[in-house]
């Protein structure tokens, strides 16, 4: 418990602090001090003694200072879509360092000042139709798709038993490279659905299949047939090292380079013919 007079001092300091923030000081430089020795209360009716009369009363100790606490996030208005932060004209709170070094310097955002808040809110209202028409892929879908298109999944199939390429094999192979699926969002192209074996001519053949994220985002993926066996004495025929194939590599297997497709609404389910749709799209792009 602090003595009454020093508490009063802190209160006044707090008021000072508020005044400082209200006047938009650029440096956070407020210090809260208290007297080491409390001054004796002036008896009623007597004049107050000069505070500098006793030197001991001029000694102060630090209670708190502003920079001892982090300043917290910064409120900014985005001027363009920034991945992982928000869309154009959104008012967002971002990490102070990120805002200062990237967003504000790069003119991707401005401080959320009272004037700018009103100015950009009006602009957002004006551009409402244009903004609504813009196709915006959610950030979590983008991050997943970027990881997935990089992969060439080894499709593990047995070298002794009969198999036919299906969802289960693809799903299991995806799980082995660290991609988990909560449902059967895998679609095989017609050519890949007819692949069966064991057939060592197919070893290391590139296969196209599609993964649909959130029933909305179709990601074309590549698999590579790899015959395996639990028996150690059997050799794996092709080296497992996989690199991203070029367009020429794809052409050898009768494939076209494809881009992910974002559907306007989440309605891509088992009845949607993903394979045909994507094949037509790739043909058009070519």
């Amino acid at each position: 418990m602090l003595p009454a007079c020093s508490r009063a001092l802190i209160r006044s300091a707090e008021r000072l602090c508020q005044a400082a923030t209200a006047s938009q000081t650029l440096s956070r430089n407020t210090w809260v001090l208290q007297r080491v020795h409390a001054a004796p209360v002036t008896p009623a009716g007597l004049p107050q003694r000069d505070p500098s009369e006793i030197r001991e009363l001029e000694r102060y100790e630090v209670v708190d200072y502003e920079t001892s606490k982090a300043a917290g996030p910064l409120k900014v208005i985005l001027l363009e879509d920034v991945e992982g932060v928000g869309h154009q004209f959104d008012v967002v709170e971002v990490d102070r360092k990120r805002a200062r070094t990237d967003l504000l310097l790069g003119k991707k955002a401005v401080y959320a000042s009272p004037f700018d808040l009103k100015y950009y809110a009006d602009m957002k209202e004006k551009m409402r139709e244009e903004l609504a028409a813009r196709v915006r892929i959610p950030y979590e879908l983008l991050t997943v798709s970027r990881e997935l298109v990089k992969l060439v999944v080894p499709l593990r199939v047995n070298m002794e038993n009969k198999w036919k390429l299906d969802r289960r094999i693809v799903k299991t192979s995806l799980r082995q490279v660290g991609v988990d699926l909560l449902d059967d969002a895998i679609f095989l192209s017609d050519a890949s659905a007819s692949i069966n074996g064991p057939n060592f001519d197919l070893e290391a053949k590139l296969v196209r299949f599609y993964v649909v994220v959130s029933q909305q985002y179709i990601i074309p993926m590549l698999g590579r047939i790899a015959h395996i066996s639990a028996d150690d004495s059997k050799q794996v025929l092709a080296p497992e090292k996989l690199k991203q194939p070029t367009a020429a590599d794809l052409a050898k297997h009768g494939l076209l380079p494809e881009e992910p497709y974002y559907h306007k609404s989440s309605e891509i389910d088992n009845e949607f013919d993903v394979a045909t749709f994507m094949r037509n799209r790739a043909g058009q792009q070519k």
Binding site: L141, V144, E147, R175, G178, V179, D180, L181, L182, V212
Partner: peptide, 25 residues
Amino acid sequence: QPLTNVFIRSHVKTQFYSVAKAIDM
């Protein structure tokens, strides 16, 4: 929890499965 139905395992916290589900996989 995973944010999408398809997710990279290393991008979410370790998922704990029931014994039946693990055996299924």
